[in-house]
Design a protein around this nucleic acid. Structure first.
Lengths: 156, 156
DNA sequence: TGTTAAAGTGTTATGTTATAACATAACACT
DNA sequence: AGTGTTATGTTATAACATAACACTTTAACA
């Protein structure tokens, strides 16, 4: 997915982003973020505990992992997938521009996640339908249960 | 939401539907379904345990409620909302025609759920974007976090 | 009508995800 | 050093969900 080299670069970049507005990307936060990036997929908080132990021999209690994930989410470095109760690294960490609300395709077989941008027009159509029904969208992040082509090929 | 009269009619109808292909809508299943319909909103399995106790003085263990909800889902009488880990009665129980995949608007404040149909064209656009990304939609059920107008008015 | 296989339910244990509440450590600034 | 703030540790518990196995009811039919 990413080489160690690449990950270090991404982490450095993330650190700069945090610093730019006074947030601190501490050691533990780095470990969690690194593990998540390295895995290249959606992981639960408890998966991350195991990975940090495996990769870095660090025991991070569940409570801390949840707090760290919340921090990283606020920093827009990770996204929480409510459909799967899992977390993924933002696929645009290294870009500097602002992003719209992301849409996620979650492979139910291998947990790989693809972050895509859907046509603004499609989204605004959706929003329209929602408002017709007397609701307001809080969050236009869509999460869709999918199967990726690679898993589909394997099972065929 | 529904009068007792209406609920009884709906239950009777549901029972007929089940019978038509050899499934049984047992007493406990009726109690769970009634409670869900009566509430008019999305409830967790554990909410339903409480409601069945309250409404009918019946103690239904968690395990049974989950089994019953699974049965009702297979019968297309209820839908599972993965975003909220809750369940809602299908809003079309009494129709006899087949329905497409439903889309849900979930009010994050009061848990009311609206089941809407989104333009087929919007959905097929979505599907298209997904396939472009190398994924296949397993399930085009969308669940969207919203706030309903009534809650929004209250907070204003 | 009695036997039986399947379906439904009960029961207990356990797994998984998430948060509350409170204590301590580390850091940053004076 | 003193103080405020942020991060982390620790323990307990809430909330959601399933596994495994036993017992009971139902309907089906010899």
């Amino acid at each position: 997915m990413h080489s160690t080299q690449n990950i270090n670069q991404i982490i450095t970049h993330a650190e700069t982003l945090c610093k730019s507005h006074g947030a601190r990307l501490t050691t533990k936060r780095k470990l969690v973020l690194s593990s998540l990036i390295q895995s290249g997929k959606a992981l639960s908080a408890y998966d991350l505990i195991d990975l940090c132990k495996e990769n870095f021999n660090e025991n991070i209690p569940a409570m801390s992992v949840y707090r760290i994930l919340e921090f990283l989410e606020n920093e827009k470095l990770v996204h929480k997938l409510k459909l799967a109760n899992k977390y993924v690294a933002c696929s645009h960490i290294t870009c500097n521009h602002d992003h719209g609300v992301p849409q996620f395709l979650i492979c139910g077989t291998c947990d790989h996640v693809k972050e895509i941008s859907i046509n603004k027009s499609t989204i605004s159509q959706l929003k329209n339908d929602v408002e017709q029904a007397g609701f307001q969208l809080i969050n236009s992040q869509l999460e869709m249960n999918c199967i990726c082509n690679s898993c589909q090929d394997k099972s065929a």
